[in-house]
Design a protein around this nucleic acid. Structure first.
Length: 762
DNA sequence: GAGTCGCCGTTTTTT
DNA sequence: ACGGCGACTC
């Protein structure tokens, strides 16, 4: 800890802070050093509404953090007078770190976080005003779905015809737009759920309240309700938040907009930073209109454009700019760079997805031989399913890669189960948690027991947990389940007592809960290949808890910060979706799958027409602008979709790219848009992997070699698999291996997907 | 209460 | 093609 304490108690609150080695008032403070004119203007325009239109790679985080330092230094403010809002925890963390570095102190005491974490913090203080208590539970998607299913069941609506997922997302879209059930008329629900979705929505909200729970949408929505109904409370926050900063404003939805507007309305010191050209979350409620309308919403707003790009070379920016210029819904910016033109964006057409993966694999190996690091390369896809072909190819090549995305730590079954135990300890009335684990591990509670439990709870209007406590005192249950239930309830009582007394620390408590409940044993005795990994995850969970002061604190953290530990990025190619690539950058970027239907996605356009096409175009823009030095775009003539070969035509975005920034490696004119006759080409793919319109025949031969080589394993070999790690070969069956992996358990894998482990540990 | 069969759906994802 | 889930059977 440094003894420098810029906003601590031993310093005058109003003492001007001038940054590291700050100088006299006459010369500009240090923290402005290195900013360009526009950036500095944005960092200095402290008062009144400000819209910073920050193009990709123009240094917006730098502006935001400098602005914060400047606010502290030039105004008589404490850090808690500044509200800084981000979308992701990652962004919040980065901001925190960078501000701390800039001011040379700790970023403690700031109101800096995600919309949801800030809203939760506020809601805990005023929960009673919306019928909750301060210790309300924040539900995860699993809980939400279970709730919807229960309501459907009670209403005798066929869950097969009306998938709970779809109904829930209907609710969420309403919440995104701040539409509560009483604002809707029954027909607003359309045909969904036999036309009864509005009534279901009302029930869903009632259930949440009776469970003393919130879903993510509610956090913001309840805030807005409170602010609107209680001007005195809102006034307190006006008093507190002198300045408000918002990152990624183009991604805000209606509720978030209302929330900001309410908080900002008294002082009007609202600075939003965003890029309308990177608005790609319309499908989950984001309103690009918020950023487009900012000047009308906040008259007199100053608009500052950051257009100097520090990331990419000229051709990359030229290609991206030419493409995005086709959008109507934009305020307009022109990115430029002082760097040179660099390499042209390379466009390449291939026969199919297999070839596409082969070609990109070869290109990556070529780049690697030229000294490029794999860690500097990324493949950005439209849909997660596209990664498979690359994975298969890279596994045979032995090319290290990582896939970003997929299930995160806190979404795994075993983690959610464990958390449910903790939730019941902290909050016995948490029915959703209670029912999740009451019979996990199996305790022999069948439908009869569960029904009695539900009936009792419903009849007496009490939580399941309490119903269980009463039932064990009566003889409504058969002796055996009653005895088991009594034991479980006694366990919970004991754990809860320990939790409050802090006996042995909460880490120890969690370990005990998992052991004494039989949950650890359940996985220990499980023969499935995933079981060992799940036990590992549970261990990781226990150690994660150690970093928190209390169980409650930890639970709050997991419900709001769903990200686990990010996998270390070594020298590996990164595979991820375009959506998750937003905000990142790579030296070399591959953009495969530019075919109409896949990208732009036919599905998106069906649902949302022209607006969706623009959003897809923004996605393409995001993709290209991730590249620092080199971008590759590929498309294929046919692709396997749901098991069928489907003919494809090049994405319309390809023809929208300005030609003078591209080099067309090769486009086979007559293969496109044809009636699906590819002559002998499909045979070529299976065989040599080459055809009339490919190049690099010599490299193609390697494909065969690699796969031929693959049967040279024998029982007992130590092998390494990209996904499952190290393991020992148990049996060989043709080109399939039966491997006992150290971490992932016993699995059958293709021999071509593993290599001999060069291990000293054998 | 566990295991098997068949059917459905299959873009993007944070909190 | 494939996985997940619900229903059905033993």
């Amino acid at each position: 800890m440094s003894d420098f304490d810029p906003f601590g108690l031993d310093q005058e609150p109003g003492a001007p802070f001038a940054g590291r080695g700050g100088s006299a008032a006459s010369s500009p403070p240090n923290y402005f050093q290195g900013l360009n004119d526009r950036q500095r203007e944005a960092a200095e325009a402290l008062d009144g509404p400000v819209l910073v239109l920050a193009g990709a790679g123009t240094g917006k985080t730098r502006v935001l953090t400098t602005r914060m330092a400047h606010l502290l230094a030039s105004r008589r403010l404490s850090p808690y007078n500044i509200l800084t809002v981000t979308f992701t925890n990652k962004a919040a963390r980065e901001m925190r770190d960078r501000v701390a570095a800039l001011i040379g102190g700790d970023a403690e005491g700031w109101w800096m976080g995600t919309f949801h974490s800030l809203a939760a913090r506020i809601l805990r203080r005023h929960a009673e005003l919306v019928g909750l208590t301060g210790n309300f539970t924040i539900l995860d998607t699993d809980d939400q779905l279970r709730l919807v299913k229960q309501i459907l069941e009670a209403e005798r609506i066929d869950a097969k015809k009306w998938p709970p997922r779809q109904i829930l997302s209907q609710f969420e879209r309403w919440k995104d737009r701040a539409v509560l059930p009483h604002k809707l008329s029954p027909k607003d629900g359309g045909k969904i759920a036999e036309g009864r979705s509005v009534a279901l929505y009302a029930q869903y909200q009632e259930r949440l309240t009776s469970l003393n729970a919130c879903d993510f949408g509610d956090l913001l929505l309840h805030n807005v309700t409170i602010f609107q109904k209680h001007p005195d409370i809102l006034a307190e926050y006006h008093q507190r938040f002198c300045y408000i900063l918002v990152d990624e404003y183009q991604d805000t939805n209606v509720v978030q907009y209302l929330w900001l507007r309410l908080l900002a309305q008294a002082r009007r010191n609202l600075c939003v930073v965003g890029d309308e050209d990177q608005s790609i979350y319309g499908w989950r409620g984001a309103e690009i209109g918020n950023i487009l309308r900012f000047e009308q919403d906040f008259p007199g707003a100053r608009v500052i454009r950051l257009e100097e790009n520090y990331r990419s070379t000229g051709h990359i920016l030229g290609a991206a700019s030419g493409l995005i210029a086709r959008n109507q819904s934009r305020l307009g910016k022109t990115l430029w760079t002082a760097a040179g033109n660099g390499e042209l964006v390379r466009v390449r057409a291939l026969l199919d997805g297999i070839e596409e993966a082969q070609w990109i694999g070869e290109e990556i190996e070529t780049l690697q031989r030229r000294g490029e690091s794999l860690g500097a390369m990324a493949i950005l896809v439209r849909a997660g399913s596209q990664t498979r072909e690359f994975e298969e190819r890279f596994l045979t090549l032995g090319l290290p890669y990582r896939v970003v995305g997929g299930l995160r730590f806190y979404e795994r079954q075993e983690i959610r189960d464990a958390l449910a135990y903790l939730r019941v300890i902290v909050q016995p009335a948490d029915d959703l948690a209670f029912e999740r684990i009451i019979n996990v591990p199996k305790r022999g509670f069948g439908p009869a027991v569960m029904q009695t439990l539900y009936q009792t709870a419903r009849a007496l209007r009490i939580p399941l947990h309490e119903a269980a406590l009463r039932l064990i005192e009566t003889d409504e249950l058969k002796p055996k389940p009653r005895q088991t239930l009594r034991g479980l309830m006694a366990d919970f009582a004991r754990w809860r007592a320990d939790a409050w007394q802090g006996e042995g620390g909460h880490t120890d408590l969690v370990r005990r809960v998992l052991d004494e409940s039989g949950y650890s044993r359940m996985w220990l005795e499980d023969k499935s290949p995933e079981a060992p990994g799940r036990l590992e995850n549970l261990k990781e969970l226990v150690s994660a808890i150690a970093e928190f002061e209390s169980l409650q604190g930890f639970l709050e953290h997991v419900s709001l910060v769903m990200d686990g530990v990010e996998a270390a990025a070594g020298a590996m190619v990164t595979l991820m979706t375009l959506h998750s690539a937003k905000g990142l950058e790579f030296d070399i970027v591959f953009l495969p799958g530019w075919e109409d239907g896949l990208f732009p996605s036919l599905r998106a356009m069906d649902e949302n027409g022209a607006a969706a096409l623009e959003e897809e175009r923004r996605l393409a823009y995001v993709g290209i602008t991730r590249a620092r030095r080199q971008a590759y775009i590929t498309c294929v003539a046919r692709r396997r979709i749901y098991g069928n070969w489907v003919d494809a035509i090049p994405s319309r975005f390809l023809s929208e790219l300005p030609a003078d920034h591209l080099s067309y490696d090769h486009i086979p004119p007559k293969a496109w848009g044809g009636g699906g006759r590819y002559g002998g080409q499909s045979e070529t793919v299976a065989g040599s992997g080459r055809n009339g319109w490919g190049r690099g025949v010599a490299v193609g031969a390697k494909v065969v070699d690699v796969s031929r080589r693959s049967c040279s394993f024998v029982e007992g070999n130590r092998v390494f698999h990209q996904k499952f790690g190290g393991g020992s070969v148990v049996a060989v069956d043709g080109d399939k291996l039966d491997v006992m992996f150290d971490q992932a358990g016993r699995r059958m894998v293709m021999a071509s997907f593993v290599r001999l482990e060069n291990s000293l540990l054998n």
